[in-house]
Design a protein around this nucleic acid. Structure first.
Length: 291
DNA sequence: ACGAAACCCTGGGTGC
DNA sequence: TGCACCCAGGGTTTCG
């Protein structure tokens, strides 16, 4: 599935292959793909037809492309995209057969390759949102800056994390605290910091939070380097699985395999209706607290 | 106000 | 072979 590094690869592809082009037509093939556009599919289409997509930006796992009028005047809006679990944004020849799960198609006035939104499980979606002056759309403002962004404030993150009264993995997955970390990266970062995800945030030391943040940064950076290698110039690729997942994951999906650090078999635990993976020796469960 | 649970969705895998 | 069931899981909404 597309994770933050893959979303960044998609952003780079959109910046290169879509930015600066003017939309000729939009075809919404599945209503769920634009469910976040509350005014409906026809309104979505009208808001984009004849407009130019000027750039491609990302925060966490969200992408947005500012919209301009034909004369390059900013329209004060942006096309917002989230890939969800299975979404892809593909730049393809018009002759390419439609994908089974093609949800939306954008053609451009230059007659070149079209942009397609393909999404098997329809957790992802597209919308046109208000975005003044090319800044982040208002509806995305609650998403925290991700740790690879130059504007990320480590001290502020540390203080906010330690103010929380929850488990550290829940905090890592909270997009209002830190953007872009999903289940896979949370598990990998916790393993690097030798912390169990159930550790209470208020009892973490500053040094432990610093280690955790370093783990997050390292795993995202290393994954991005892998995701970048699978980018094909004719194709806005979101499939980083073959490059990254198979070789660099220490714990995620590695149940019963030896911990790369100590050899102890990795264990899988149920958490928030999904899976958590950890090394029982490197990342011991916290003792139950008496209250 | 904050934390946690419910909900959305479909194809691949597994067991009977 | 086919059917029922489980699993993947981010973000928004709802609940406590």
């Amino acid at each position: 599935m597309p994770e933050l590094p893959e979303v960044e690869v998609v952003r780079r592809g959109l910046e290169r292959w879509v930015a600066g082009r003017t939309v000729a037509a939009v075809e919404v093939r599945h209503p769920r793909a634009v469910r976040r556009h509350l005014e409906g599919a026809d309104h979505f289409t009208a808001a984009l037809t004849g407009r130019t997509l000027t750039a491609a930006y990302r925060r966490g796992k969200y992408l947005w492309l500012p919209i301009a009028e034909a004369d390059d005047t900013p329209a004060g809006q942006a096309l917002v995209a989230h890939l969800g679990m299975s979404g892809q944004l593909l730049v393809e020849k018009r002759s390419q057969p439609d994908e089974t799960h093609l949800r939306a198609r954008f053609t451009f006035t230059d007659g070149g390759r079209e942009l397609r939104f393909v999404d098997q499980r329809t957790f992802g979606g597209l919308a046109v949102e208000d975005a003044d002056g090319g800044s982040i759309p208002a509806r995305l403002a609650h998403i925290a800056i991700d740790p690879l962004d130059a504007g990320f404030d480590a001290d502020r993150f540390s203080a906010a994390l330690r103010r929380r009264r929850t488990e550290v993995k829940r905090a890592l997955l909270d997009q209002t605290l830190i953007g872009g970390v999903g289940n896979i990266y949370a598990d990998e970062a916790l393993w690097r910091a030798r912390l169990h995800g159930s550790r209470p945030t208020e009892r973490l030391s500053r040094a432990q939070v610093a280690d955790l943040l370093e783990g997050v940064r390292d795993v995202l950076t290393e994954s991005l380097a892998q995701g970048g290698t699978s980018f094909d110039s004719l194709y806005v690729d979101v499939n980083g699985q073959s490059g990254y997942f198979s070789r660099h994951l220490a714990v995620y999906g590695q149940a019963d395999r030896p911990c790369p650090r100590c050899g102890t078999p990795i264990v899988r635990e149920s958490f928030m209706n999904r899976s958590s993976y950890s090394c029982p020796r490197c990342q011991p469960r916290p003792r139950a607290r008496r209250s």
